[in-house]
Design a protein around this nucleic acid. Structure first.
Length: 605
DNA sequence: CTAGGGTTAG
């Protein structure tokens, strides 16, 4: 290959390309390495080549694929194109822009588009569509609309792709009804809505969480002359898997196949993930086998799903086995793979191994990102090493990382749990002044931390502001406040808030009821707490093991009402729950100082 | 040369 390059006649370049293809097909060289190599050789050639050869150089690059092109490389390529004479065609620029867009560097694409214009090269419909797509993917549909304006002003006609891109952008932003409105506009403009149009909308509906509406839409699509394809089916199948409706998901898969639409690796990834997340490991393994049987090759996402499920279940050894298997099968791990593994070690307080995994990650050319470092911060906080966490956090700028609301949440939570609530508050202020917008979860963590550290007044103040703001407060936030009030001994206020939840349009869940039951018990109002247990059942909320254990311990405490606790334990066992560690410890303590008789322990098991 | 589906963190 090097020899062919050295004497770069057209024939030799063709020969070199054949060698490259051979290397790729035989798997002797990875595509990204090959790209770098041919780019290097091309550059060497430039030293003694004419301007025509420079043109061949970038054409060659654009054709040989820009897979995973890095920023510096892309910028250099762009500049070599701008400098060449005659100028490259807009098709060449489109190829470059779309290659960069595939790596999700949308800002870079938009920046280069601007530079292209400044160099006197005018857009066409294609490059403008790419710009619209970049704005849409960055959730800036308003700017995408202004590009649409430019399309019209320049005398181009927006085509189906232009509208589909915008419709998808609106759906990504959650503006599904606006997207549907644009479908009408599209038809008015003489463009046909197609499978992609409806696919985007079905996806938008799924993302809004309304799977049954998405199913209705799919049916309507089928009735009209727009046939749904594997992408649209997979979208709905994925939603069903997320909802845990695995039977319906499999039914839809079969229906799709009956219609002659072949499932893909994406379809199966959703199903494998769905079964494993539902704890149905056997079914997960079965579907994985089914997938391989259908000659659908598991890819990096398949393994990432499997690894992540194992990590979440605490099955780190099994996760590592899948990691080994993916490498054995020639599937390259990516940043997400390592992020799951790093997170797994952090969650189990195995920080040394987490850092070793980080080294392995870097060694395998996967760049750690904000998610990686956020996991490490969480690990340090969990391991009570808040100082190490802070040190790592302060290294973010030099690593080129910009902390987000997750980063601050982890730190705020860490410092609150460590009893250093002032530092947590300081961090919260820093977050706001850095322009990071706290969301409901960030506030929840702060309020919980304040309550936990005896700062109920402060928490109430913030909570009042939040209630008056536009932020959507959910049941979790109210539960945190009810718990905070109970912890601070303000059980009456907690009860008032609890009773007012329906007025605020918030539905209490099992955690809310359990927290309120705990508060009532704390105040010694045991029969009221017991009544609340009955009330929650009436309200259609099933008590869980935590609810029962809370009440059982309350009745046991102070040598209290042993008969009622025994009755509650029997009831709890009949629902398949058992005494938790705290309850068992309490019983053991009471046995040892004689407040309980031996028989009580037998009842627990 | 452009458009729709799957994986990670609080």
């Amino acid at each position: 290959m090097v020899l062919f390059y050295r004497k770069s006649t057209t024939l030799n370049l063709k020969a070199s390309r054949l060698v490259q293809l051979h290397l790729l097909e035989t798997g002797m060289l990875r595509n990204d390495i090959l790209c770098s190599l041919s780019s290097f050789l091309s550059c060497c050639r430039q030293d003694f080549s004419s301007i025509t050869d420079v043109k061949v150089c970038f054409r060659e690059r654009l054709r040989s694929g820009l897979i995973n092109i890095k920023k510096d490389d892309a910028v250099a390529l762009f500049h070599s194109m701008i400098r060449s004479n005659p100028l490259p065609t807009l098709i060449d620029f489109s190829r470059l822009f779309s290659g960069i867009a595939k790596t999700k560097q949308y800002d870079l694409v938009l920046d280069l588009c601007k530079q292209m214009e400044l160099n006197g090269i005018a857009h066409n419909n294609y490059t403008l569509n790419i710009m619209i797509n970049c704005f849409c993917k960055s959730c800036k549909t308003c700017f995408a609309y202004s590009v649409l304006g430019k399309v019209m002003k320049l005398g181009f006609s927006p085509d189906t792709t232009t509208f589909n891109t915008l419709i998808n952008g609106l759906c990504l932003e959650g503006k599904v009804s606006e997207a549907v409105g644009l479908v009408n506009k599209m038809v008015e403009n003489g463009c046909q809505a197609d499978t992609v149009t409806f696919g985007s909308i079905v996806n938008g509906i799924c993302k809004s969480g309304d799977t049954s509406l998405a199913l209705d839409f799919l049916r309507k699509m089928e009735e009209s002359n727009v046939k749904a394809d594997v992408v649209t089916y997979s979208t709905v199948i994925d939603s069903l898997c997320r909802d845990g409706c695995m039977d319906d998901a499999v039914k839809l898969l079969n229906e799709m196949e009956r219609k002659g639409i072949k499932s893909s690796v994406v379809t199966f990834n959703s199903l494998v993930g769905g079964f494993c997340k539902a704890g149905k490991w056997d079914e997960g393994a079965k579907i994985l086998k089914d997938m391989i049987g259908r000659k659908i090759i598991p890819n990096v996402v398949t393994f990432n799903v499997l690894i992540d499920v194992c990590v979440k279940e605490g099955k780190l050894e099994k996760a590592k086995e899948f990691y080994e298997e993916m490498i054995m099968r020639g599937v390259s791990p990516n940043t997400i793979t390592y992020n799951s593994l790093v997170d797994g070690f952090c969650m189990q307080n195995r920080l040394g191994e987490a850092n070793k995994m980080l080294d392995l990650m870097v060694g395998n050319n996967c760049s750690p990102d904000l998610v990686t470092f956020n996991s490490l911060l969480k690990g340090y906080c969990k391991g009570k090493k808040v100082d190490d966490a802070m040190k790592l956090f302060r290294e973010f700028p030099e690593k080129g990382l910009v902390a987000n609301e997750v980063t601050y949440s982890i730190l705020v939570q860490g410092f609150c749990q460590f009893g250093k609530v002032e530092i947590a508050e300081e961090l919260f202020r820093e977050m706001v002044s850095c322009g990071v917008v706290p969301d409901a979860m960030t506030y929840g963590i702060l309020l919980d931390g304040l309550c936990e550290n005896g700062k109920l007044e402060k928490a109430l103040e913030i909570f009042k502001d939040l209630e008056e703001s536009k932020m959507d407060l959910d049941v979790i936030m109210y539960t945190i406040m009810i718990e905070g009030m109970c912890k601070s001994g303000e059980v009456d206020d907690a009860w008032t808030l609890f009773c007012n939840l329906p007025l605020k349009g918030v539905k209490a869940n099992v955690k809310t009821y359990t927290v309120m039951i705990w508060g009532l018990c704390k105040k010694g109002l045991l029969s009221e707490a017991n009544m609340l247990l009955r009330k929650m059942e009436e309200d259609g909320i099933a008590p869980n093991d935590c609810t029962y254990n809370t009440l059982v311990r309350a009745y046991l405490r102070d040598g209290g009402d042993l008969a009622t606790s025994a009755k509650l334990i029997e009831e709890m066992k009949s629902y398949g729950f058992s005494a938790d560690a705290s309850t068992v410890k309490m019983v053991m303590d009471m046995l040892s100082d004689g407040r309980l008789e031996k028989g009580f322990l037998d009842m627990l098991s």
